[in-house]
Each structure stands twice: as structure tokens, then as C-alpha cells.
Design a binder for these strands. Sequence first.
RNA 1: GCCGGUGUGGUGGAAUAGGCAGACACAAGGGACUUAAAAUCCCUCGCCGUAAAAAGCGUACCGGUUCGACCCCGGUCACCGGCACCA
Length: 803
Amino acid sequence: MKYDFTAIEAKWQKIWQEKNLYKSVTGGEKEKFYALIEFPYPSGVGLHVGHARPYTAMDTIARKHRMMGQNVLFPMGYDAFGLPTENYAIKNHIHPRIVTETNVKNFRAQLQSLGYSFDWDREIDTTDPKYFKWTQWIFLQMFKKGLAYKAKMPVNWCTSCKCVLANEEVVDNGCERCGAPVIRKEQSQWMLKITEYAQRLLDDLDEVDFIDRVKAQQRNWIGRSTGAEVRFGSTLGDEILIYTTRPDTLFGATYMVLSPEHALVAKWMDKLENAEAVKAYQAEAAAKSDFERTELAKDKTGVMLMGVKGINPVNGKEIPIFISDYVLSTYGTGAIMAVPGHDDRDWAFAKKFGCDIIEVVKGGNVEEAAFTDCDTGVMVNSGFLNDMTVEEAKKAIIDFLTQKGIGEAKVNFKLRDWVFSRQRYWGEPIPIVHCEKCGTVALDESQLPLLLPEVESYEPTDDGNSPLSAITDWVNTTCPCCGGPAKRETDTMPQWAGSSWYFLRYMDNHNDDDLVSKEAVNYWGPVDWYNGGMEHTTLHLLYSRFWHKFLYDIGVVPTKEPYAKRTSHGMILGEGGIKMSKSRGNVINPTDVINEYGADTMRSYIIFIGDFEKAASWSSNAVKGCKRFLDKVWNLAETVNDQETEYSKKNESAIHKTVKKVSSDIDALKGNTALAALMSLTSTLSDNGCNAAELKTLLQLLSPFAPHICDELWELHGFEGICSVSQWPTYDEAKCKDSEIDMAVQVNGKLRGTIHVEADLDNETVIEIAKNDEKIARFLEKNGGNIVKTIVVKNKLVNLIVK
RNA sequence: GCCGGUGUGGUGGAAUAGGCAGACACAAGGGACUUAAAAUCCCUCGCCGUAAAAAGCGUACCGGUUCGACCCCGGUCACCGGCACCA
């Protein structure tokens, strides 16, 4: 019989579905295992091979854990709100809901054709009102706790999407999604106070098993720094609050810099002798895009404020004050003390503007360059701090500032609050109304979900308003508080909203009364293993940790962290290592591969392609290699016609070794070497002859990778039950050893031969055999010398040291 | 500049509690089967060298530790990812 993968795969996908084979039930005796992958955005293009990599890898893990007897939750859903759907809808005059439905249907079919063992009863869709009811509910809870607030502020505005972006969504000064330039725009926006959770988001990284690069990237993004806030005086009487990480260098502060937007500048404007120049600089800075502001980084610009001086609180010295855009209004206090002797930027600025440079830490030459790498230095020119180390001085100055009431220790974060509103149609409506009398009022929970109105046009507007603002029927409503006329909030939520909690909904997706039941979340939480893309590290992954901590605080979830473990996969590149793209025409469609070679080949190849964490390039030839392997397995199975239940002596150790290797490799995300081991085992069994017991184990080990062919061969050989839910084979450590082995023989650390010996011989015997080996003996004779030392690594090698 | 990572045959990649570098596969070459092709099977396949061996060289580069280093340590270079005037 031929290996007819098309028929086999259709047959088994149907059986799995009909039997609900991969259903997970909440509760029970079995140990739970919650495996999660990032749900896709169902775009019109369909599933990409880039999706297939993490999905297939996690499917092998889920399948193996299920076979090991665990209760596995492995769900799938759709993150379906978002701009591409909306843009497609606008262009083709189809409602985004219809577009979404079509795309989801297509995605589901593609996912099923790959044979993933999802529990399809738990499928979710973020655009389903039954789902986004709870997204809105969480927003309301945040609003009630003061974590969601509206603020007018400069925001990132994507010129193409006509919509604001979160800081996390700006990449290289462009839009993360479409790449169009991002400009700054003053606009009133909904914000979420993620900064309130900054310390906890940082601290709790210690408690989770995330790969290091994810942790490092999140730590970087949160950007904690410690230092002090210090109140400087001014000759106009106002206090100037600055933040510094180097309070020890306070005596070296020779000038101050305020950001151009700093409130004191406006306050002082009337009294400034050069108000015109100052205003001109402010206007110039405001007109600069973020891109220009960073482009010009090397050349410092600024204007001195004439008519006011700062007063250094530790020595009473009057120092000049500048405004310059190298000081950011959004970080710290928007004002700094400049210590040119020990900060590169201050040094560059001081040189250009002729400010004094004072050395306060010995060790460098501050006339040549700022001495910044000075942790081990000793203080000078610093009054009572003189002769202290930098570390001692930091402590002493903070004590001093605190005592005198002119400053205190302060922690700062780079993390900013999350800009949460979007001026687009296809997102969750924000369940808020604006009432002239009562102000900003939350909808009553009983009014959730707040549905999107039907509209004729979803076109975004240039004036910064959402398309919803034009739907007066919908906008005009009554205030839930006073019953008077009120207007609905017309901005919608960003795509990251629905994905910030979706893993909770999988646990209990049919619940109409709660976001998730206590029973379900206590049983399934936290996610045991979450795999996803590195590109989400400071977006979705951080946001969802934040939401989860909030839900923990209000008692909805029992754990501080949503995910116990996080791994990440590398990209799949096109043939020759070039990025896949439509314009290059090198995009691989999984469906084409499945049609030509079958899902099992597709799955095997995507696992075999290389190191899971690294980028890998597609190779059509290598796909054929995996097909050949499955053909070999098929052909091998055809040679088996006995009813044997024990492994043969000949194959025993090979089988045990392979069970061991495959078992550990799957959980180490090393499916590539697991498959290599299975290829070797298949060759061994082909050479030695294969009995039913051996075939059975081979099929079980291969099943997580290529489940269809294994279920089919299992059935053809009359094994009991279904292979993909059979019990995972075990191995005996003692039987993983060969009775005879090859050992390397080195002389002075260089390989000179090998000996074939019984395993586990004692050192003396091995050394004797090695010395008397023909090749070695000849070598020793030729090169002379006495053996002065011998090293034996058991069952591996002998090293003879000769002088 | 800061943080993280990577560097191994023609190619994808194996091998790290320091112990035979190149598993497994792709490509290439040779052979068998075939009227022929496809498929399949067998052999070769790091460099250099040889009739064949042997010897020599080889995991980005330089150096160190060790009986022994792709692996550990110090330094250098290249590339990839993230952040970036964050005081």
C-alpha cells in the first residue's frame, strides 16, 4: 500500500474532531498542563509558515504531555480587532465583522489542516461581544480604581493610520504596524497607569521562568534608576526640582538645564531679558519631530535664560540656567543639574556654551573628556564629601539633603503610562460617557457589552476624531449618573486590549456570568508554558502582565503572574536567508506544502528546520528529506507482521536510548535532534528487522511530530486505541547502554586510534588493551618515551601521557 | 553609547557538568535497477596530502588555563536583535 497522506490526514482529522479527542476538562485527578501560543490576527492573507513554527512546536509539547497522562489545555482563538481588517473593509465596502468572519473561517480550516491538537470547544474571538464584554469590564474596574484616566498630552500620531500609538508601538520613529512616520500631536487620550506597576513588573521577573533575553528586554524597557531629587533655588525665588542619579557630584553642578516645555520657563518669560530668543527656541523644539530631535543628538543646542540664575543648595553658588531639548520633559522632573566633569552630554554642552567644568571625582582629565566611569574614584572639590569614595558620597549626600529638607532619594522609571485610546472603528468601544454635569462617567456594568454601532463609513478622519464621533444616534445618550443628556466616548481600545487577558478566557470561555470562574482559574492558572514572538516582549507580554497584576489586586485571579514560563521562536526566512515578503514573491504558503507533501511532512520539516530560537531559512529540498523519512517509516511498518510485545535484544538499547532522547528533547524545544534520533532509529530498525513492539514505540515517539501517519499505522497494525492518546513509552536507564563500545585512545591528548571493548571495564584493563592496540603500540614504539600518566574517562576515552 | 545574543563543512545544523568535532538532513559526485525518466537502494563527501595509508591543519581572530578546549578565562573583530540625549 502507498502512503496516501491526503486521505490519511483527512480521515484522522475527522476522527479527532468527532471523538473530541483533545478535549480538556476542568478539574479531575490528572495533573494539569496549560500550553499557550499567541493567538493569530486573522488577516486576509491566511496562515503563514511563521505561525506554523511556534504552533507546531507547542503542539508537539502538548501532545507529548497528553500522552504522559497530563490534563492538557491547548487552546486557540483569534485576536480579530485591528486595522488591517478595518482598512480592507473600507476599501472593499464590506463590514469588518463580515471580513473577520471570513478570515476566521479560513484560519480555522488552515489550522485544522495542520492537525493541531487544539481543544476547539474553547475557541475565542476578541470581537465577539460575549468576549469583549469582559475586556470592557476590566477597563471599567481600572477606571474605578483610578488606573484609567484621560489626559491631554503630546502623543505619537501615525500619519497613515490616522491614529495615536503607544510608546511601545513606535519603532525607529515609525509606526510599528505600517512603518509610516510618526509625529507628535497634542491630544486628549485615555491612559492606563502601567507606571504604578513598574516596580512589581520588574521585581516579579525574578519569580518566573522566562528566557533571559525576554527578562533583559523588559528590565531595559522598564528602566529603573536610583538617585535623588534635589530642590535648587533660583534668583527669582522659585524652586527648581531636578532629578539626578549622581547626587554625589552635586558640588560639580555648574549650570542647569530645563526642558523647553518646562512650566517655569513660561512663568519667568516676562522677566527674561532674552524672551524672544527663548520663545524662538521653544517653537523650534516643538516643531521638531522625535526623529529630528534624536538625529540632532550629537550637536547640542540651547538658550541661556538671561535674568535668572539657579542656586546650588549645597554651596549657595549662582549658576546659569539653560533650556535645551536634550532634557526631556517626560522623564524625571524635566530639569537637570549639569555636571560637565562627569557626564558626556553635559560636557559636550558645556564646551559649546563655555560653561565651567569642575572635577569632583579624581582619576580622569575633565578638560579632555567627562570622567564618567568613576565608581572607584575619590571625591574632590566637594566640601564635606572630599576624600570619600563615590559610593560613600552618594549615601552621605542623600542623608545631608534629607536632613536639610532640600532633597531625598528617588527612584525613576523609563516606562511611561500606556496610551490606550485609538481613533478607529474596529475596536472595543470604551464604555464611558461624558456628561456636562457629572463629568466622565462609567457605564453601569449591566450595560455591557457596549456594542459598536452600525455605520456607513469607517474612514478615519484627519482631525483626530474616531469615525464613531460622526454617528450622532450612538454618541448622544443619557448619563448613567444623572439621567441627563451625555455623549459617549468615541475612541476605541487598542488591539492589545483583547489580548491582555485572553488566556484567562480559555479556561472558562462559555461563562456568561464571570470573566472566568474561580474554579477554572484556580485549576488552570497560571499558564505553564507560553511561547511567542520576541516582538511582543515590551508590548503584549508586558501589558498582559500588568493587567494580570491588576486582576490579582482586585481578586479575580489567584496568582501574581500570568505565565510561569516564556520561550520565544526565531523567524522563518525565505530560501537563501532573505526575509519572506509578498513583493519578493518568496512567501511560502503552508497550504501549498500540505497539498504537495502532507501536513505530517510540513510539521516535521518545520521542527527539523533548525534551532528553534534562531532564525531559519526555508529550503524546499529539505522538505523533501522529511517526506522521504515518513516514507521510510511507512515502508518499515509494512515489513512488520508479527504480534511481538517485547523488544528484540538487537534493537533494545537503540529503542531505550531513543525514548530517552526524544522525551527530553521535546521539552527542551529540540525537536530537530529528536527527529534526527527518530531517523536513526528508523534506519536501525530497517537494518536489523523490526517487530511489532518496536514499531509501536517508534510510532508513539513520532506521533507528536507526525500524528496522522502514526495513528494510521497504529490502526493498520491493530494496536489498541489511538496512538496520539496512547501512553507515552518509558525507558530503562540500564538498557540505554551498549554492551560493547568504541573508546577513543589519545596519546598526549591527540587522537591516535580507537578500541572496541566491553562496556564498564576497569581502568587497568582498558589501559592494557589501549597500550597493546596494534596502532597505538606502533605509534608508541615509533615515538618512544615512557608513559608517565594515564587518564581514563569511563566508556569514552583513554589518554596516555608520554614523555 | 548601553543591554542581550550569535560566529562550526558547499548548505541547514549536531556535539557544552571540558573527553573521538561535523550526528541527522540537504546539495553535489559516482554506481545499481530501468528501454528511458521518476522513485528507490549502495558508495564518496572539512582542508591538505597519499596509489592507498600515515603525518599535518581545522569550530571568527589573538592569547591563557588544562593530560585534553567549539565548550572555561582575558582581549579583539564581525554580524543580528532591543533600547537610546532617560540626567
